[in-house]
Nucleic acid binder design. Structure first.
Ligand code: FES
Ligand code: FES
Lengths: 147, 147
DNA sequence: ATTTTGCCTATTGATTCGATAGGATAAATT
DNA sequence: AATTTATCCTATCGAATCAATAGGCAAAAT
């Protein structure tokens, strides 16, 4: 399971992406419409800002907004930001790689092979899920339901 | 990442599967050849025994052995045993399902759609990875390397 | 000047993780 | 029968992580 922090992050970013052209959006607004604890969300957004994912406007009528291309922000990177690696074993991660104490030879380790396959498939899907794509999907799901 | 407990469990079961016809295998042997803390492994094996995955023989020359068909033991079930759900969100798990506070309508939630895809692919691969299959894979990887 | 909003530090309680200690019980060997 | 070799069981440990909140400072608009 991903952490609540990451889940909140994803929902906040999708919210910001949806209202990209409505000027800065306040923490309070996001917290209320997405049902996220306000103070927790605050900490997340500050963090996202320091990392350069979002920008902020202080003072009255302030808030947050996305200043990047939506296509550049995908779920794989968002998950890695707070939860670390996506691969389920240290030997199948890229950025967090560590060899396995239990295994003599990584190349012939069948356990590794399985988890490598899982990781590769997962990363593929999560990379494709950028914010622009997610919004598109949401619209298409809504259309489908109305019919 | 899966827990060390689950990682140890997988390696222990693969070890037992490899030596299925050599009689009971002792904790000490597994712990040493697989580099698993002995006492930790002990707790795991007792647990596996109580759940019926393995059987044991007490006293001198005792140890553990698998009494099921290897095809019936797959990675998906093993992971679920100690680490719980494979899906990354409560709304995409089967046995541990919980609705998301953040989302109004599950059917039109694009976030859920992504994570559902990841879960389905992962489970597919992990279900296919039963102990018999893993041993086969290991042999084939070794052959490939020798060439 | 006042209000509104983001920014920052610090702390908290709960839970989980990984690992170990110490002894009871059972079976085979001597 | 005594001894050795295993598993079995209970209990506990420190460290780390998770989720959430408190309280005040800084900046910008009215
Ligand atoms: S090398 Fe990582 S599980 Fe074998
Ligand atoms: S329903 Fe679970 S993320 Fe939307």
């Amino acid at each position: 399971m991903i952490s609540k922090k990451t889940k909140y992050t994803i929902h906040a970013l999708v919210h910001l992406a949806k209202h990209k052209d409505s000027g800065p959006i306040q923490i309070k607004t996001i917290a209320e419409t997405e049902n996220i604890p306000k103070k927790f969300l605050e900490a997340i957004l500050i963090d996202l800002r320091n990392k350069g994912y979002v920008a902020s406007q202080k003072g009255r009528n302030g808030g947050y907004y996305i200043n990047r291309d939506l296509k550049e922000m995908n779920f794989a990177d968002i998950i890695r930001m707070f939860d670390g690696p996506i691969g389920m074993l240290p030997c199948v991660t890229y950025l967090y790689y560590e060899p396995c104490e239990e295994c003599e030879d990584e190349e012939t380790c069948a356990v590794r092979k399985i988890f490598k396959d899982v990781r590769d498939e997962s990363v593929k899907i999560l990379k494709a899920a950028n914010l622009a794509e997610v919004i598109k999907t949401e619209k298409s799901l809504s259309r489908k339901k109305k019919k």
